[in-house]
């Protein structure tokens, strides 16, 4: 075992991780607030009005980063779940449990803002578009993970059962995504095309990336705070 890996396991101990998590959470929380303010300023005031969609498009500054995060957090959750099962580290399981509510929140925000965007753009609150449908199923997967952990009283079993479910889920996510996409093309044709014009104004892209970074920081901060709570509960 190299010195490097020893150091990793050193941080895997809840006692050492607890104060570190507090410091990181504080800095990430502050960064999230600053970045969110900057991103919203760019998105709402600096970015130009879209030629086709008017002002309504501005919801993508929330919608797109939330959708990115929703999918990314599931993968991170499954990663920590796999680490937890492989190395039997409690902290990894706690990370997975702590990530789930944030991931579900971002999935819900992505769906909610997506329907707000759909109303003025498509004229309807909900379309069985491939991406919206995949997000909906992703939300169900998050709910399943949280419901399973909540239903098991024995904490060890809850963590390990949830971890296995997360791994099975992450294997299925690409299959679900592509099958839904295929189903969508079969049933709907290309009547509603989500693909936006490729030439996106630079400020729009900047705003979106800043918001994505803000959501990253928020996720890290909230997850670490939740891990701290879980560590205290486990004492």
């Amino acid at each position: 075992m190299t010195a490097q890996s020893v150091k990793w396991f050193w941080y895997a101990s809840p006692q050492t991780f607890y104060p570190v998590a507090g410091v990181i959470a504080r800095w990430c929380g502050a960064a999230a607030a600053v970045l969110c303010a900057a991103g919203l300023y760019i998105g709402l005031f600096v970015a130009p009005t879209d030629a086709q969609q008017g002002e309504a498009y501005r919801i993508i500054f929330i919608h797109v980063p939330a959708a990115w995060m929703s999918m990314f957090i599931y993968v991170v959750m499954a990663f920590w779940a796999a680490i937890g099962l492989a190395f039997n580290t409690r902290l990894s399981h706690m990370m997975a449990s702590a990530l789930a509510p944030t991931g579900a929140l971002f999935t819900f925000i992505a769906l909610w803002t997506g329907s707000f965007w759909g109303k003025p753009t498509w004229g309807t609150w909900w379309v069985w578009d491939a991406r919206l449908t995949s997000e909906l199923i992703l939300l169900f997967l998050y709910f399943g993970f949280m419901a399973l952990q909540a239903a098991i009283d024995d904490r060890r079993r809850a963590e390990r059962a949830g971890a296995l479910l997360a791994i099975v889920g992450v294997v299925n996510v690409p299959i679900i995504y592509y099958s839904v996409q295929w189903w969508n093309t079969l049933h709907q044709g290309a009547s509603v095309s989500l693909t936006r014009a490729p030439s996106m104004a630079a400020t729009m892209l900047t705003g979106m990336l800043v918001m994505a970074l803000a959501f990253w920081m928020y996720s890290i901060a909230v997850t670490l705070l939740r891990v701290r709570c879980l560590i205290l509960e486990n004492r």
Binding site: I137, F140, L141, F143, G144, A147, L148, L165, V168, G169, N172, I175, I176, S179, V180
Partner: peptide, 10 residues
């Protein structure tokens, strides 16, 4: 059903 039905989608 909450766990398994989403996995049945494909």
């Amino acid at each position: 059903s909450l766990l398994v039905l989403p996995l049945y989608v494909p």
